[in-house]
């Protein structure tokens, strides 16, 4: 199989009055080793779709096929236990991946260096800045070298240098054969990173294809606004 992820007719309906259709018949297929971005307005269903792919939510209908033994997930607002140090956090979450102690330590050191947190590795996470915690969350998602990385707003809260560094890491992961699915509101970053683009509007996938073909001659932001709301001035 040459695809990394197949989303087939996925719908999610939340019970309540009235019943809310969060996702409606979403289908797409992601080839291995590509970066696919999901964009849409707030509440369009992007984060919900990522959580379904990560196995944190079950769809009401449809199925997810993942051609990868391991998934890394970085949530939009990563939370940590603040008294634990960055190094301890990564070593122990390595255990959650069933890595043995020495492999966990090796992976923790490796990723702390890659995300530029090696000098702050023994600081309690509660004392790290938002940008540093964001990098730590990326390191945790990438721990154990998953073949599929799901990143929800990974560049949120980072300064320009931090954003540049993290974009470099995402591109390096792609170059090493990892498939990356990411959500972001910063469309200039999406334009820079994505091979393919999915546009979700009110729970429906309205476009899925090459980023360049969606953008045409415009910048991505203008194309997106025109696509969602052609009357918007």
């Amino acid at each position: 199989m040459s695809f990394a992820l197949a989303v087939t007719n996925v719908s999610l309906i939340r019970d309540g009055r009235p019943r809310q259709t969060v996702l409606d018949g979403v289908s797409f297929m992601v080839p291995k080793g590509q970066i696919v971005s999901l964009i849409g307005q707030n509440g369009a269903g992007k984060t919900t779709l990522l959580k379904i792919i990560a196995g944190l939510l079950s769809p009401s209908r449809g199925s997810i096929t993942i051609n990868s033994p391991r998934i890394g997930f970085m949530p939009e607002q990563p939370g940590f236990l603040p008294a634990v140090t960055a190094w301890q956090w990564l070593v122990l979450t390595g255990g959650l991946l069933n890595l043995n102690r020495s492999e966990s330590k090796h992976q923790a050191d490796l990723w702390l260096r890659r995300v530029g947190l090696h000098t702050a590795r023994h600081q309690p996470i509660g004392r790290l800045s938002k940008g540093m915690r964001q990098r730590l969350a990326f390191a945790q998602a990438a721990l154990g070298d998953p073949q599929l990385l799901l990143l929800d707003e990974p560049l949120d809260g980072l300064d320009p240098i931090g954003r540049q560094d993290l974009k470099g890491l995402i591109l390096a992961a792609r170059d090493n054969g990892t498939t990356v699915i990411l959500c972001s509101h910063i469309l200039s970053d999406i334009d820079e990173l994505s091979d393919r683009l999915g546009v979700i509007d009110h729970g429906q996938l309205k476009f899925f294809g090459d980023t360049a073909s969606f953008r045409a001659d415009n910048d991505l932001e203008r194309s997106f606004v025109n696509f969602i709301n052609p009357q918007h001035v």
């Binding site: 990560a54 997930f73 949530p75 990563p78 939370g79 940590f80 236990l81 959650l96 991946l97």
Partner: peptide
């Protein structure tokens, strides 16, 4: 606090 702070999301997304 796993749920309140989101730590559970990080941990539960592991297999």
């Amino acid at each position: 606090a796993e749920q309140e702070r989101g730590a559970g999301l990080l941990l539960a997304s592991k297999p």
